[in-house]
Amino acid sequence: MNPLLLADITVFVLGLLVGFEVISKVPATLHTPLMSGANAIHGVVLVGVMLLAATATTVTGYVVVFVAAAFAAMNVAGGYVVTDRMLAMFRTRQENRQ
């Protein structure tokens, strides 16, 4: 196996473990914003689409880039905004009175 692939696999496995560790501490109260926030994080696929755009040279390639960019941008922009909207509603009693 080539060393680049091994490094990628290492990063992937450690990422999974860090994810398990961090996310298992999130209380049930916040599970919806957690899922929506995690959803926004996989919007990083937009970076992948941008890197792909650098290699596109054919009409098929441009079409794929266009659709993928639309998908990814919708994911990332919508995901963060809707998560923020939800989290802004979680207040304590004192904050509600203000």
Binding site: G15, L17, G19, A38, I41, V47, G48
Partner: peptide, 19 residues
């Protein structure tokens, strides 16, 4: 991320997969 060789995609994807 594996296809493009991008660590940030691999890490973010793994985090979401775990969640």
């Amino acid at each position: 991320g594996f296809v493009l060789g991008s660590d940030v995609l691999i890490i973010a994807g793994a985090l979401v997969g775990a969640a």
